[in-house]
Amino acid sequence: MKKLFGGINMTYPKVIIFAIIAAVYTAVMAIIPITRDTSFRDISITFEVWILFGIIIIMNSKSPVDSAIKCFLFFLISQPLIYLIQVPFSSQGWHIFVYYKYWFIWTLLTIPMGFIGHYMKKDKMWGLAILAPILALLASHYGSFLRETTSFFPYHLISTIFCVVTLIIYPLVIFKDKKIRTIGLVISIVMILAATGYMLLKGSVSYKTSLMANGYEIDETGEIINFDDTYKVYLKDKSFGELSIGYEDGLQDYIINADFRKVGKTEFTIEAPDGTKKVFTINIKRDTYSFKKKE
């Protein structure tokens, strides 16, 4: 651990290689369909892993200026390369670079952040003040990931654990003074507890969508599914969420609305006023689903 946070001769060629490896890995995680809505794709969206990369560079730099230049160089290479690699695989093509604007702003901010961040190495109490905003950002990520994990387990579980671990580790590996390390650890724990409490107050995340409209045709059989507000619709396992029938003004017809609260497989039933039932199996994922009529 000491080697990683201060024992590496972080030369400019190493920074460039580091940036290329990070970019390739991130792009691959963004491209592979199976990583969608998982912790493995979070690196292409949120900051927690990039904070780690930045701190590693800062802790292995020789001066504030050296730290600022290397942080800037790392992000200047890695971020556009991530999108460049995705171009041939994305339906957006070159338009995918519209998302780079957000990361370019942060790339520019790495110059002052790298410069100021280097002073954490002085092992002073004000170094902890420099680290505190980073811990707060990590805590906010932790709260968001925890809410996703508890709502759609095990989605983002690894990212949730990663944030907790880094929140605890950073004060311990950056500082040598026992008092500063202890205060930093207490701050991290308080932030973790606060983020957890806030998540509990906000409640679980739900995935709201529409399952089908009146007159839906089943591809396999060509059967037409008709319903209106006199029908009932419900999930076999109510822990997965709720279904309801409502009138959609835009369609000028009835639709089945869904409010899913967890992922997995279950069944839902459309019941006519005369008691006739049509049962479907449904596989619910974080932000998509598939269903078919049960024979």
Rank of each mutant, 00 (worst) to 15 (best):
H156C: 01
L146W: 03
S188C: 02
T182Q: 12
I189Y: 11
A195M: 09
V165E: 11
Y155K: 08
P171E: 12
E148W: 14
S151V: 09
H156S: 02
V173T: 12
L146T: 03
I189P: 13
I192A: 13
I161N: 11
M191D: 12
Y155I: 11
P171M: 08
F153P: 00
K176V: 00
I187C: 03
G184L: 01
K176Y: 03
I174L: 08
I180G: 01
P154C: 10
P171S: 13
I192T: 09
L157P: 09
L146A: 14
L185C: 10
I189V: 14
S151R: 07
F175H: 08
T150H: 11
P154R: 15
P171I: 05
L167H: 03
I161G: 10
G184W: 03
F162T: 05
K178R: 10
K178D: 02
T166I: 14
T160Y: 12
M191P: 12
I158H: 10
G184I: 01
V186C: 07
I180C: 01
E148Q: 09
G184N: 06
I174G: 07
I192Y: 04
I183H: 06
Y155F: 14
L172W: 12
R181Y: 02
S151H: 08
S188D: 08
S188M: 00
S151P: 02
T160Q: 12
L146Q: 06
I187S: 09
P171K: 15
E148P: 00
K176E: 04
